[in-house]
């Protein structure tokens, strides 16, 4: 059994959690002071996922802010960043536009702002 140490982010308490992991699942959680801490650790030890936010350079040279439409695997963030930095949208971009479909498993790259006029 592997033992993982985490800090709970559900509230400002920031409980120091310990989770025992077996076959990719939490078999126990210690250190939490509420049920939310237990759930946080159970999700976090399986496969931590994060939404990536960044900005990309449009063809006209200006920057446009972007995000992944769904969380991506934490372990793959730097790989996904390389793909994001190769995206250079052309023409006017609107908030919500998909700039690159399927940039990661189950996630598109989406504009989070309109092109400045």
């Amino acid at each position: 059994m592997e033992i993982k140490h985490l800090t709970c982010i559900e509230c400002p308490m920031g409980c120091a959690l310990e989770a025992g992991v077996e076959d990719g699942r939490a078999v126990y959680v210690k250190g939490n002071s509420c049920p939310r801490g237990k759930m946080y650790a159970e999700n976090e030890v399986v496969c931590p996922m994060r939404v990536i936010t960044s900005s990309v350079r449009a063809a006209d040279g200006r920057m446009i802010s972007v995000k992944t439409s769904a969380p991506v695997k934490k372990s793959e963030m730097l790989e996904v960043m390389k793909k994001i930095n190769a995206v250079h949208p052309e023409g006017r971009v609107r908030l919500g536009d998909v700039l690159a479909a399927g940039i990661a498993d189950g996630a598109d790259l989406v504009a989070t702002d309109d092109s400045p006029l």
Partner: peptide
């Protein structure tokens, strides 16, 4: 502030700064 986490209290969703501003 292109990162997300804005609007969790007000809109119950995690917006980026530009999305909140717009």
């Amino acid at each position: 502030c292109i990162h997300n986490g804005f609007g969790l209290t007000r809109f119950k969703e995690s917006l980026t700064g530009p999305e909140y501003a717009r």
